[in-house]
């Protein structure tokens, strides 16, 4: 693992740093409020490493939700990870010894960092992807532990800093839009999700949206493969 690789991975992961530390801190505080202290925050962020599920998880722990509820909620909240893995099969094919950890650490943000931008010049591709995953994971764990240890919000107002995650996705969306000629997949994702958000409300639109996106892209397959061949 050369220095260029470490440096490139660190720079690539910086946009996630602030968001993960602050959202992680929020989680640590929430979990402490629910009656579970530092070891719990540390273990959950280390072994689950999925932001929205951990937030829901804090309230499940507080209310003593049943194990079946735990299973169903985890599936509902995290089903989208199936998507990430499907589109990383090719990229992670020869990741070797790094592969299990890279799959484990494939969060929304890590996915967005790694699926878009090319691997920087002079960096070893798989080691670079491994390190981006590792750095992001460490920000998340650090934030959670910090929040649990402090138990209160930071002395200055961080209100609105969670927008850094939204900004990350908007920047990635814009970047790939400018770089690709076929905008149908991007529009499909945007519009199908918007339609489902309107139809199903903010609580339960994600799984219908995933199904709709898959259905539309499947129906468009022949058309898309034809255009891909023409442009080659």
């Amino acid at each position: 693992m050369n220095r260029n690789t470490v440096k490139a991975a660190l720079i690539r992961s910086i946009p996630v740093m602030a968001g993960y530390i602050v959202l992680g801190t929020g989680f640590g505080i929430l979990l402490r409020g629910a009656g579970y202290g530092l070891p719990w925050a540390f273990a959950m962020s280390l072994f689950i490493y999925a932001g929205s599920l951990q937030y829901v998880g804090a309230s499940m722990l507080a209310s003593g939700a049943s194990l079946l509820t735990g299973i169903l909620t985890s599936i509902m909240v995290n089903a989208r990870h199936l998507f990430y893995s499907i589109s990383m099969i090719g990229r992670y094919r020869d990741a070797g010894r790094f592969k299990p950890y890279m799959i484990f650490g494939l969060t929304d943000e890590v996915y967005t960092l790694l699926v878009g931008g090319e691997v920087p010049e002079g960096a070893e591709p798989q080691a670079y992807r491994f390190l981006v995953t590792l750095f992001c994971h460490s920000y998340w764990v650090t934030g959670s532990v910090l929040g649990s240890a402090l138990g209160t919000v930071l002395p200055f107002s961080t209100e609105g800093i969670e927008f850094s995650m939204t900004a990350l996705f908007i920047a990635a969306f814009t970047g790939q839009w400018l770089e690709s000629r076929d905008h149908i997949p991007a529009l499909t994702g945007l519009l199908c999700t918007l339609v489902c958000r309107i139809l199903f409300g903010p609580g339960r639109f994600l799984i219908p949206a995933m199904l709709l996106i898959t259905a539309v892209l499947t129906l468009l397959r022949h058309r898309m493969e034809d255009t891909a061949e023409e442009s080659q």
């Binding site: 998507f83 699926v115 990635a172 199908c192 892209l217």
Partner: peptide, 8 residues
């Protein structure tokens, strides 16, 4: 899927 998921 990648551009679609990022849109989502």
């Amino acid at each position: 899927l990648p551009p679609a998921i990022i849109g989502m």
